[in-house]
Design a protein around this nucleic acid. Structure first.
Length: 306
DNA sequence: CGCGTTTGACCAGCGC
DNA sequence: GCGCTGGTCAAACGCG
């Protein structure tokens, strides 16, 4: 199934927004980005819907618009396919590279300390806790966000308390430091920073393992700034939780934990998930229904004048 | 007023 | 020893 986004006001972003949350709840609202709601394109669509239409022309226009959007949808589908192919190719190269590196470091029997942040974090943590025998578990998660979304929010089902923010040398984006809200009983920390290569990608580095189950209200896991800054998010984004082991096929595919997904399968999973996310959102469906109801009500007059 | 975020100060590791 | 950098602390601040 290829999701037809022709009717979706989200089409300009949803088609390529890979930032989906497999665990999205029905009570979590998915709204179009604020930028889209304020865009000229959306205003124009709204204006068209609210205008007293010349029924025949309007229908013709709508059919044309549908054709245009269908074409656009096909093009976007092709783009996703190409992206998936590229992703798989790059990932394979990366895995090969990492394996090669690991082999070499094993051979030289040197303690491999990565040059990235995790390495320094590990070192620091070991110093903090000399009694620690086992290295804390470090995992890095990449989360695609809406390009306009400037917040550093990674919804992962846990409650976090922000304790610092820094601008690092090699990345103009600030890095935020979080501790698990249940600290000190739960020692987990995370760092969140936008990718230097792709500002729409948030890189979250987790250290340690939670000693407690997920919070019951994942939507509140990270407060968005001092409550008042919530509006800055500009619109909800769906986040992809890559940390959970009980991942859906989608997660497996996107994380690359299995390499056996074809681009078509990946694309299918993405599209299916976007479709279910949208249709599961009562506000979104209600808004669409209302818009169409209004339009159809005027366009299809059951009691034609004389 | 409580709670969580913000942000400047402080600390420690590292390289020169 | 000094400066740079990343990580953490804690007082100030703001919102509900």
């Amino acid at each position: 199934m290829v999701m037809d986004l022709s009717f979706s006001p989200l089409r300009s972003t949803a088609s390529l927004d890979l930032n989906v949350n497999p665990d999205l709840r029905e009570d979590e609202l998915v709204v179009p980005p604020k930028e889209y709601l304020e865009s000229a394109e959306f205003m124009e669509l709204q204006r068209k819907l609210s205008e007293k239409p010349n029924h025949h022309d309007e229908r013709g226009e709508l059919m044309e618009e549908m054709d245009r959007l269908s074409t656009e949808n096909k093009e976007l589908s092709q783009m996703i396919t190409v992206m998936c192919e590229n992703y798989n190719s790059l990932r394979k190269q990366m895995v090969d590279f990492v394996n090669e590196k690991k082999r070499k470091s094993d051979q030289s029997s040197t303690q491999s300390s990565s040059t990235d942040d995790n390495g320094s974090w590990n070192k620091r943590l070991k110093e903090d806790d000399p009694g620690a025998i086992k290295e804390p578990k470090i995992s890095t998660v990449y989360v695609k966000t809406h390009p306009f979304d400037t917040s550093l929010i990674v919804k992962d089902g846990y409650l976090w308390r922000k304790y610092g923010q820094k601008v690092t040398r090699d990345n103009p984006s600030p890095r935020a430091y979080y501790k698990c809200a249940l600290a000190p009983s739960c020692p987990v920390k995370k760092k969140v920073q936008r990718s230097i290569e792709d500002q729409s990608v948030i890189v979250a580095t987790y250290e340690g393992e939670h000693t407690h189950p997920m919070e019951a209200t994942p939507s509140s896991n990270v407060r968005s700034g001092s409550a008042g800054s919530a509006g800055k998010q500009g619109g909800r984004t769906m986040t992809m939780d890559l940390t959970r082991s009980t991942t859906s096929r989608l997660n497996k595919g996107m994380l690359g934990r299995t390499m056996d997904e074809t681009p078509q399968q990946l694309q299918q999973m993405l599209v299916d998930h976007m479709a279910s996310s949208l249709t599961n959102d009562p506000k979104f469906t209600a808004a669409i229904a209302a818009a169409f109801s209004e339009n159809m009500h005027e366009g299809i007059n059951i009691n034609p004048p004389h």
